[in-house]
């Protein structure tokens, strides 16, 4: 089976309430899709996502791997750049950055170092070597 990467623009979740947002994303992950969300959830929604994921775990669905990339967190060198970043952050809010949600049966681990994101995929039964994808 091929790998499905589902892109979700922020506009698709913008109008939804917290529970519906989380359930929409989780439903996609449960269909074995790797979800790439434009922007990010609120911190409370991230915690809800983990809690609801736990409720859904069974013999087939083992949970998720989650990573949030937030460019606002990167420290800028100068005061002016700092103001610029803060201004853009105020304008864009949660639209900034992106979120990756992968089903644990497909994605073994997401390493989110400051400079890069690594998706380590689960070994499929046939090939023994581990596949690795890098998004820079």
């Amino acid at each position: 089976m091929g790998l499905v990467l589902q892109f979700v623009p922020y506009s698709e979740i913008e109008e939804l309430g917290p529970a519906r947002r989380v359930n929409k994303l989780l439903d996609m992950a449960k269909q074995n899709k790797i979800v790439l969300l434009e922007g990010r959830l609120k911190k409370e929604e991230e915690a809800d996502l983990i809690a609801i994921t736990m409720e859904e775990i069974n013999n087939k669905f083992k949970g998720i791997e989650l990573a949030v990339v937030n460019p606002q967190k990167k420290k800028e060198g100068t005061f002016l750049k700092g103001i610029k970043t803060a201004f853009i952050g105020t304008l864009l809010g949660d639209r900034q950055g992106f979120t990756i949600i992968g089903p644990a049966t497909v994605v073994k681990q997401i390493r989110n170092d400051p400079g890069k994101i690594e998706l380590l995929m689960q070994d499929t039964p046939a090939p023994k070597s581990r596949k690795q994808k890098k998004i820079k």
Partner: peptide, 17 residues
């Protein structure tokens, strides 16, 4: 272990909030 896991960031973010 690697500290940059999303679980760590989510817990700390929620406490901060």
């Amino acid at each position: 272990k690697d500290p940059y896991s999303q679980v760590n960031i989510t817990i700390i973010g929620n406490l901060q909030a």
